[in-house]
Each structure stands twice: as C-alpha cells, then as structure tokens.
Simulated scan of single mutants.
Amino acid sequence: MHRRQFLGLAAGTLAAGALAACAPRAAQKAIAAAGGNTGKLDNGAAAFNAARRFASNRFGEIAYVERGSGPAALFLHGFPLNGYQWRGAIDRLSPYRRCVAPDSMGLGYTRPAPGQGVTPADQVQMLTTLLDQLHIDTVDIVANDSGGAIAQLFMTTHPERVRTVLLTNCDVEPDSPPPAVGPVIEAARRGRFADEWLVPNVVDKNFARSPKGLGGSTFTYPQRMADETFDMYLQPIIATPQRKALADAYALGLTPNPLAGVEPLLKKSTIPTRIIWGTGDTIFAASDPGYLDKTLGNSKGVRMIEGANLFFPEEFPDVIAEEARKLWGV
C-alpha cells in the first residue's frame, strides 16, 4: 500500500477526502450524513484557553480542560495536537460526563518537570496521578492517534480504572510507529523536528492547509481550519528551545514500538471497546481497524467514516458524541 510520509512532506498523491475542494461529491455527502462538518469549523480558542487549568504534581504542571459532571470521560489527543482537539466532542458530551482533556507531556500547554520522560509509558503514569488528584476512580476513554496507543497501555495496565474505550485512527502493535512516521523520528534524532516540520505551519497558514502541511495531510477539510487552530496546537511547542526539545523527545518516545507485547493483554480485556476509523488516513494502514476488532477481547465493532482523515475527531464531533453515548448507554 502506497502511503505518504507523516504530515505529507514526501511526494505522493492526495488521499481521497484530504481536501474538501477535491473530495468527490459522493464522499462529501457521505461525510455530511455521518455527522462530519462540511461548513466552517468552530474555533473557540479563547473559551478553551480561559477554561484551561493546571495540576501540579511530580510530573510537572499538567494542563487540562474539564467540563461537565458525573462519571468521568478522559480524552487523549494525537501528535502534535493537544486537548483542544476534543472541544467539539466535549461540548456535546459534557451533559452526560465529567469530561477531562489533558495535554500530553511534551505537547500542548503542559509543562513537564525537568528531566521528565515523555514516552507513552510515562504518559500513562502521569494520567494515573492526574486522575488521583482529580479524585477520579474510573473513566471512559476516548482517544486518537498516539493518544490511542496511550489508551491501549492504560487499559491494559489499569483495567480496573476503565469502563469503556472509544478508539479512532491510532497505533496498533503491528503498526507502531507506522512507517510514515520514520522521517519525523529521524528529524527528532537530529534535534530538528519542530523547526523543520512545525514552524513552517505557523509561519505560513496557507502552507499549513496545503497537501504538504499539517492540515492538508492529516485533516479532512484543511481549508476550513482557522489560523488560530494551527497556533493553538503548534505555538506552545515551538515557543522555546526547551519546548522544541520536548517535542523531539515525544517523537523519539514512539520508538522502539511502545505497544510491543500488548496484544495478549488486549485479547484478555473485558473492557467494551468501540472503533471509529476514517478511510482517508494515509498514516496508519487500512488493515489496522480490522486488527483491533479481531484482537480486542470485548470489541463492539468498527464504524468506517468514508474519506475522513487522521485527525477527524475534531471535524466530526457529532460522530464522536453519537458513538460515545451508544457505548456509554446514555
């Protein structure tokens, strides 16, 4: 299967649905019918910034947004995004759950303690501590991309703390990290990931929306993304040399395979897990959702979203909310 390199910097053809202007009319109709946003995306940056809190613990200052009450839902974002990815889903699900969306260490607005590791295993430990601080015993997890890898580690390390899991396009053991991420990891080894891969998207938002930018390669409708959205995700990562180094560390933490050995544990899992997968994703293999469905001990099946790209949860909050409520039984 031919796949572009991560964030689309290598040559290759555009995946179907990667740009709204280029998407076939039938695909656009299918996306709209599935609950995708075919109009201008809601930004909401000011409100999200105002809602941000920080939890101080041994891992550093952990940024998170919390809304709602009742049983808790934990939202785990992708790379190089942050909790802002889930704003639309939180809007729709906060009437039913206490929604908590933290920023992973090394990304977003979280400030890790000096010398703190930022691997997926480190993220699991941080999340456990954060939940304890927030007096949360059990959660429903909703996750995307590298956040999905963290979710799988969390649910197999602390199964007693997880009620349900909703996974979207993400790493799986045989595809972690996916080959397309290789150039990112190589740039991180040279200490150049943020400068070479992220800074151009902040400097030139038209580039960011192009097939070679973050938006054009990983979002379904990049032309509808506000300038502030790119800044929300990337400005904190490129703000200082220290933050750039943390982003390098995050990328390096994706290798060797952080999910090595997790398959037998997933097979034994009794946690109800539902999978939603965008077919426009060129980062993860088309076989990955089938693998998850076959491997998870209590899989609730797969829903395919035609033409949706890797970071579709931001663009398809109605789909996330619909599937989450079904899984939660509310």
Rank of each mutant, 00 (worst) to 15 (best):
M1R: 12
R4H: 10
F6W: 14
G8I: 02
A11L: 11
A15M: 10
A16V: 14
A16Q: 10
G17L: 01
L19Y: 13
A21D: 15
K29N: 13
A33Y: 09
A34S: 14
L41E: 02
A46M: 06
R53M: 12
F54T: 11
F54N: 10
F59P: 02
F59C: 10
I62F: 09
A63D: 05
Y64W: 07
Y64S: 04
V65H: 01
G68H: 04
S69D: 15
P71A: 15
P71V: 05
P71M: 07
F75V: 01
F75M: 08
L76M: 12
F79Y: 13
F79L: 13
L81F: 09
G83F: 04
I90E: 00
R92Y: 08
L93V: 01
Y96T: 06
Y96K: 00
D103I: 00
M105Y: 04
L107H: 02
Y109T: 05
R111T: 04
P112L: 02
P114S: 11
G115N: 09
G117E: 12
Q125A: 15
T129P: 03
L130G: 07
H135M: 07
V142P: 01
S146A: 03
S146T: 03
G147L: 00
F154C: 05
T157A: 15
H158C: 14
R161Y: 13
R161T: 12
V162Q: 10
V162T: 10
T164R: 10
V165W: 01
L166Q: 01
L167K: 01
T168Q: 05
D171Y: 13
V172S: 08
V172G: 04
E173G: 11
D175Y: 07
P177D: 06
P179H: 11
P183M: 08
V184W: 14
E186K: 08
A188Q: 04
R190T: 09
R192A: 15
F193T: 01
L198E: 02
P200I: 10
V202C: 14
V203Q: 15
D204Y: 09
N206Y: 10
F207I: 08
F207T: 08
S210N: 07
P211W: 06
L214D: 02
S217V: 05
T220S: 08
P222Y: 00
Q223V: 06
E228G: 11
E228C: 04
T229S: 12
Y233S: 13
L234W: 04
Q235W: 11
I238T: 08
A239T: 06
T240A: 07
Q242N: 05
Q242F: 04
Q242C: 04
K244Y: 03
Y250G: 00
L254N: 09
L259W: 11
A260M: 11
G261W: 08
E263D: 15
E263R: 11
K267G: 15
I271L: 10
I271F: 14
I275D: 04
G278R: 00
T279P: 05
I283D: 01
A285Q: 12
L292G: 09
S299I: 05
K300R: 15
G301Q: 09
V302P: 06
R303N: 12
M304L: 14
I305E: 10
E306H: 09
E306F: 10
A308K: 00
N309H: 13
N309A: 15
L310K: 00
E315P: 08
F316C: 05
D318N: 13
A321T: 06
R325E: 14
